[in-house]
Write a protein that binds this DNA or RNA. Structure first.
Lengths: 341, 341
DNA sequence: TTGCCAAACCGAAACGCTTCGGGCAAGCCT
DNA sequence: AGGCTTGCCCGAAGCGTTTCGGTTTGGCAA
């Protein structure tokens, strides 16, 4: 068995109360007492009993994420990376991160309810935001801290970490506009996701600002897989109207599909068609073979630390405005863009 | 807030003690009291507080799995499926299943230690067994229940669920021997894994029993990916000695690689080369395009329920011998085997 | 009648921690 | 000198549950 506070109290001659306060860094404990308590704790290999802590304070030090029930295989690899990232980030902050997969027919809200009622979780990381997200509504009603990866509104009233996807869409389009393109196709992510909608909005406004017409035939939503990218490209390039002279890919997998479709059509990049893409920099997707591609770039794995910070901040009761962060992105020039032929 | 035992006691006129015993189905509570307590519990939407339970009884109702730190992308999809399966299986049994990803440089044993000392987990599901597994040694020493997916020895002293991989190797080989093949190649999984070793053993003994020489050049270990399968095939078919007339694939992804390598070499299945494979029946790996392949078949997803049962059995103190289960497999005939040409 | 037993129940202690409300010095102000 | 603050500390209560030991019944045998 692990040592308890009482053991440390006995070893140091302090009271249990004071040891608790010392280890939790309260401010009416003298510095030397804190040191003494900490040393004894380490010597005795003390680990706080999370259940007892939770029972006494209402905090367990455990945070969780509920994996949505749909199984979309292409995302699996990303989920694992996310779990790894969050697990590490919380671990470094002395918290335990825990993943629970919703069952297939199960309602997301009731899964959260079950976890809260069990009395073991301090807060949640949410992914895949929706407009008017019911999970958010429920958790807010119950006063349970949360942080969202992404956001369901331009200016939500809950903590989140997101990148400015409107700007991503705008900048991707702007790169091509600056090179002189006027017919710009966009192979975007799944229609129902917020980030895809934001990027579309960016594309849309960039075109309008440039005084160009927005042709819905030049926009495709879909899963971010190679085949979807290829199919969308074939459809756009084989349409009746004038072909696009440039394409935007929502991520590198879509870009890969675009490249193979263009190769199949005998079109060269950037000679015949320019290509830009947003790169999440997910490792291990074996995209070495892709030609260098201009566009925007924001490492998804840089989300985990801010998310962890924001959730812990929420648990500790910091105001929401301090817990909303928008990450940056880079614009890279790699030679996949040229003026229209 | 959720109702507590005291609320139920107040509502029913019973004592807290008796309500607790009633809800936990102890045997010195009258049937009608049990019913009364259960009804009140439901009416008040009572959820036991896991932290309090854990503190009092030493059981939290939470079990976990620690994801090994290496990131082997081809397995990610399987991990997600496993997490889903286990999460559901434990959920159905009133337990909470929880996943914790080990950090990259982190020692597996110390991760388990941290989780146990935190006092929140009742037991662990272990995956990827090793010979003399240090996790098992540690958990057994601390008296923490565990169940292994697979096994590190033919007859381990801990609970496990596994299929008879020696028999899988033997049967795959036997199918080909019966058709008259004598030079049989085996494209197997990673060398360090137990199941691959077991299958190799089955192949080996089947050959020996048939009075045939065992040629190590006809056995390849590697990741279970399409490219590994293709490369192994090219190597075996291009060797100096006599070519194999039949190939065994460790799973369907390897089989896919074998098929494309054979096609590249202009060899027909089963006319020129026979192929058998073991099929884990993992969904979503888009193997529709594969020709029907004879061999063995055991759905990996049938492991989750037995694993959950075994771990709960271990937690409840049932003897180890009742907690060791070997799942079956099918032998399927699909036309990818013919006598050697 | 008395004594005994089993069935059904209950009070109180315990689990390890946090926190509320206070106590005791020592130093400062007026 | 009396009263206040400040810094450090402690006892005890309480979180919601399980469980140990004991008490109250009613029935049955002696």
């Amino acid at each position: 068995m692990s040592a308890t506070l009482r053991d440390i109290a006995a070893a140091t001659g302090l009271s249990v109360t004071q040891v608790s306060r010392a280890l939790n860094d309260h401010d009416d404990v003298s510095v030397e007492t804190k040191i003494r308590a900490r040393e004894a704790a380490r010597a005795l290999n003390y680990r706080p009993n999370l259940s007892a802590r939770r029972l006494a304070s209402g905090r367990s030090g455990i945070v969780g994420l509920v994996l949505p029930p749909q199984d979309r295989t292409p995302r699996d690899s990303m989920f694992v990376q996310m779990v790894r990232g969050l697990s590490g980030a919380f671990s470094r902050r002395g918290r335990l991160f825990v993943l629970h997969a919703a069952e297939d027919g199960e309602d997301m809200v009731s899964v959260h309810q079950r976890l809260i009622d069990g009395g073991s979780l301090d807060g949640f990381v949410l992914i895949e935001p929706e407009h008017g997200d019911p999970r958010v509504a429920y958790l807010q009603k119950r006063g349970v801290p949360l942080v969202m990866h992404g956001r369901g509104a331009p200016r939500p009233d809950y903590p989140f970490f997101d990148i400015d996807n409107v700007a991503v869409g705008r900048e991707l389009t702007a790169i091509l506009l600056r090179a002189g393109h006027e017919r710009i196709g966009f192979v975007n992510g799944i229609a129902s996701t917020c980030y895809a909608a934001h990027r579309r909005e960016g594309w849309d406004t960039a075109l309008r600002v440039a005084g160009l017409a927005v042709d819905p035939a030049l926009h495709e939503h879909g899963q971010m897989t190679e085949s979807v990218g290829a199919l969308a490209t074939l459809r756009m390039m084989g349409g009746d109207g004038p072909r696009p002279t440039a394409l935007i890919a929502g991520n590198m997998l879509l870009a890969k599909g675009i490249y193979s479709a263009l190769a199949m059509l005998g079109l060269k990049v950037p000679g015949d068609v320019s290509v830009v893409a947003h790169d999440d920099m997910l490792p291990g997707e074996d995209l070495m073979s892709l030609p260098p591609t201009s566009g925007t770039r924001a490492a998804l794995e840089q989300s985990w630390e801010p998310l962890a910070d924001a959730l812990i901040g929420a648990i500790e009761g910091r105001p929401v405005t301090q817990l909303q962060q928008v990450g940056g992105f880079e614009i890279v020039e790699a030679g996949s863009v040229a003026p229209p032929g």
